[in-house]
Simulated assay, not measured.
Amino acid sequence: MASRWNSRVSIILLFCFPEVLLSAVVTLHSLEIYTTHELLASTPTVYFRCSGENKTYLPDVTKKNTLYTFRGEESFQPLMKFESTKCKRCGFYEEDRITSDDVFDEWEFCPSDFKSDDGRYIRTKDKEFNATFLCPECVKKGTLESSDTALHEKGNGMHWSVKLIIAISVVASTVLLIIGLIVAYKYWLKRKRQHEQARFLKLFEDTDEIEDELGIGPLSDSI
């Protein structure tokens, strides 16, 4: 019950805070080195390290061209831990007793590197080494991020749809307003002409009445 509750809490936190990875540990599943760099030492001292963190020595790795497999329960495991979605600068090195340590390879190690369903990531450098890492939690995080990205893209699509509908509504309202103003203006002109015609006719009627009263109109001649 507690495990199920913790899983639900983790999922909620991942959706609310996508930058948080909730301590995804990385274990070393296998390693094979193809060369050694230290000439004076009969047995190489190989270690893994991320920038700003402690060295993780691999005491079992003592020979080149030999595949070493691990169960994830060794004393040096877990190899490292991701506490966010940010990448780390990591690499495999060989200690050098005289000069600076030799580098098998350095690279940007990211949670997104773990793309397979079983959380497996293989790193290979020609003539140097072949390593396999495991991080099941990184795969879960990647799945959630993909879902979150899909939801975000869907939200963006809906956002643009709403914008388009609003724009069409504004244009339609503007067109209707212009048409309404034109109709109202034409109606006003028509009423104005009717009013002027009525006023003009009334003016003629008033003139005829005045002429009749003065006896200068057409009717006065007939009398």
Rank of each mutant, 00 (worst) to 15 (best):
A2C: 12
S7F: 10
I11E: 11
L13V: 04
L13P: 02
L14K: 11
L14Q: 06
P18L: 03
E19I: 03
E19W: 13
L21W: 00
L21K: 00
L21T: 09
L22W: 05
A24E: 09
L28G: 05
H29M: 06
S30K: 15
I33P: 10
I33E: 11
Y34K: 15
T35G: 02
T36C: 11
H37A: 02
H37D: 04
E38G: 02
L39K: 15
A41T: 13
A41V: 12
T43R: 12
P44D: 08
P44I: 09
T45M: 06
T45K: 11
V46A: 07
Y47V: 06
F48Y: 04
C50H: 01
S51C: 01
G52W: 15
G52F: 14
E53D: 00
T56E: 13
T56S: 14
Y57I: 12
P59N: 05
D60E: 08
K64I: 07
N65W: 01
Y68F: 12
F70W: 06
E73K: 14
E73W: 00
E73C: 03
E74G: 08
S75D: 13
S75W: 02
M80A: 05
K81E: 11
F82E: 07
C90E: 10
Y93I: 00
E95H: 07
E95M: 02
R97T: 04
I98R: 07
I98D: 01
I98Y: 11
I98P: 06
S100C: 00
D101F: 10
D101C: 05
V103R: 04
F104G: 00
F104V: 05
W107I: 00
C110V: 04
P111E: 01
S112F: 14
D113I: 04
D113W: 07
F114G: 08
K115D: 11
D118C: 05
G119I: 02
R120W: 08
Y121F: 11
R123N: 05
D126W: 12
K127E: 03
E128N: 09
T132V: 13
T132Q: 10
P136Y: 04
E137W: 14
C138V: 00
V139D: 11
K141H: 09
G142T: 08
L144R: 07
S146W: 12
S147E: 14
L151E: 13
L151F: 15
L151W: 14
L151N: 10
H152K: 09
K154F: 03
K154T: 05
G155T: 06
N156V: 10
N156R: 10
N156F: 07
G157F: 15
S161M: 09
V162C: 01
K163E: 05
L164H: 12
A167N: 07
S169M: 10
V170M: 13
A172E: 15
A172M: 15
T174V: 03
L176W: 08
I178R: 15
I179D: 01
G180V: 08
L181F: 07
I182G: 07
V183Q: 12
A184E: 11
K192H: 07
R193E: 14
R193N: 13
F200V: 06
F200D: 03
K202Y: 01
D206H: 12
D206Q: 10
T207Q: 08
T207C: 01
D208V: 06
E209W: 04
E209H: 10
I210S: 02
D212G: 08
D212F: 07
L214I: 09
G215L: 13
I216P: 01
I216N: 00
L219F: 02
L219T: 14
S222L: 14
S222W: 15
I223F: 03
